[in-house]
Amino acid sequence: MTKQQPNNPLHGITLEKVVTSLVDHYGWEKLAQRIDINCFKSNPSVKSSLKFLRKTDWARAKVESLYLSTFDNPSPWGR
């Protein structure tokens, strides 16, 4: 059974999609400037970033926050 999470804006969005979207939007260099973690600076890859972010809650929270502020800007006129 799947639980509904109406108050979770990231419900149904994988961490891989979050990282991939941010890399596509900013690129590794600018992403590393925004979030200062080594997995974005030293030989970055989606795979290594996912491995680190799944283990490190504070870093994952920063990445998810940046994703929401970058891509989830609802307007009163719709999307």
Rank of each mutant, 00 (worst) to 15 (best):
M1S: 09
M1Y: 10
M1N: 09
K3D: 13
K3I: 11
K3Q: 14
Q4L: 07
Q5I: 02
Q5V: 07
P6F: 06
N7Y: 15
N8Q: 11
N8A: 09
N8G: 10
N8I: 04
N8H: 12
P9G: 00
H11Q: 10
H11G: 01
H11M: 06
H11F: 09
G12Y: 08
I13F: 06
I13M: 05
T14D: 01
K17R: 13
K17H: 12
V19G: 03
T20R: 13
T20V: 13
T20I: 04
S21L: 05
V23E: 14
D24A: 11
H25W: 07
H25C: 09
H25D: 06
Y26F: 15
Y26A: 00
G27R: 10
G27H: 06
G27C: 10
G27I: 05
K30Y: 14
L31T: 08
L31E: 08
Q33H: 10
R34L: 15
I35K: 01
I35F: 03
I37M: 12
I37F: 10
N38K: 15
N38V: 15
N38S: 15
F40C: 11
F40K: 00
N43G: 02
P44C: 11
P44G: 12
V46N: 09
V46S: 05
V46C: 12
S49G: 07
L50V: 09
K51Y: 05
K51E: 02
K51Q: 04
F52C: 08
L53V: 03
L53Q: 02
R54S: 08
R54Y: 01
R54C: 00
R54Q: 03
K55N: 07
D57E: 12
W58S: 13
A59G: 10
A59Y: 01
R60P: 08
A61E: 15
K62Q: 15
K62C: 12
E64S: 03
E64P: 01
L66C: 10
L66M: 13
Y67P: 05
Y67G: 04
T70L: 06
T70R: 06
F71R: 08
F71Q: 00
F71M: 05
D72N: 13
D72V: 04
N73C: 08
N73A: 08
P74Q: 04
P74Y: 06
P76A: 00
W77N: 01
R79V: 02
R79I: 02
